[in-house]
Design a binder for these strands. Structure first.
Lengths: 125, 125
DNA sequence: ACGATACTGATATGTCAATCTCATTAAAGA
DNA sequence: TCTTTAATGAGATTGACATATCAGTATCGT
C-alpha cells in the first residue's frame, strides 16, 4: 500500500490512452498503444496502473461474454456495447431501451442491467 | 473422430441433468449433479459430453460476463438471463424487450443481442 | 542536489479452466 | 458369449491471463 502517489510518464501514457479511447480496451491493447509514448513500458505496469485507476474511480472494468476484461473511463454515462464479430472491436452505444423492468420476475430485485449487441461494424459490413 | 456412438450411463446422466435444468449450468455444477447418478463420473467426461452434445445441437453455450461458460438445452426459445449477485445463480427470463434495433448505430448490422440483468433473486432478496 | 522510497521492467510464479494421455472399462454387433 | 473399439477416469499438461518478486530507476519533498 502506498501512502504517497507519484506521477510517472508510464501512468500518464496509460491515462492518455484511456482518455482518447472510443470503446473499452483490453490490457494488451492499452499496452500496445501506450508503448508509442513510452517504448519501455512493461505489461505489468499496465495491470498495476489499471488497478490503481480503478481504485481511484477513474476507470471501470467492462466484461464482454467470452472475452477477457476490458477497461473504459468511468466518466462515461450509462451505455451499452456492440461487439463486431469480424474485427472483434467493441463499440459504445449511446441509447438505452425502455421496458427493462418488465423482464424482472416477481420477487426479484434488479440493480443493474447490460445489453450487448453482436453483428458487423461499419467497416466490416 | 468416432463414427459410431455409444449410449453410456455417464452421458445419460449428464443429459438428464440438462433436461431438468432451470437456468444455464457450469461444467462443475453439471458434474456435481450428475455425480449423484454416476459416482465415478470424471470432470473430463463432462467436458467431452458437453462438446458432443453441442455438436449434436442439443446443447448451447451461454456466456455471462466475468464468468466461465455455462450450458443450457438449445430447445429453449429466445430468452435472456438474470444473475443473482448473492448466490450467483443464473435464471432464465421469459420476455424480451422492444426497440433493440434503435440502439444500432448507422451503418452497423446487428445479428444478435443479449440482455443480462443483475440483482437479487427471490431467495436472496 | 540529496535521500527516502514509490515505481518500473523482466521474468518467475500462480491460478484456473480446459484438454490430452493412456491404461482400463464396457457397449453393441456378430 | 466373444471381439472390437468407443468411452471413461485419473492425473499430467497446456494455455491464457494475472500477480509476485526484486534489483534498478526515477520522483519529489526537503
Amino acid at each position: 500500500m502506498s501512502l504517497e502517489r507519484r506521477t510517472t510518464k508510464q501512468k500518464e501514457a496509460i491515462r492518455a490512452v484511456l482518455a482518447t479511447q472510443e470503446g473499452p480496451l483490453m490490457p494488451d491493447e492499452i499496452h500496445a498503444m501506450a508503448l508509442k509514448a513510452v517504448p519501455s513500458l512493461g505489461i505489468a505496469t499496465v495491470y498495476r496502473s489499471l488497478k490503481t485507476l480503478q481504485d481511484e474511480g477513474m476507470v471501470r472494468c467492462v466484461e464482454i461474454p467470452g472475452q477477457s476484461p476490458r477497461y473504459e473511463r468511468s466518466d462515461k454515462g450509462h451505455h451499452h456495447h456492440f461487439l463486431c464479430q469480424k474485427c472483434h472491436t467493441v463499440f459504445d452505444l449511446e441509447k438505452c431501451v425502455e421496458g427493462i423492468k418488465k423482464l424482472v420476475p416477481p420477487g426479484f430485485r434488479i440493480t443493474d442491467h447490460e445489453i450487448i449487441l453482436h453483428g458487423l461494424c461499419k467497416s466490416c459490413v
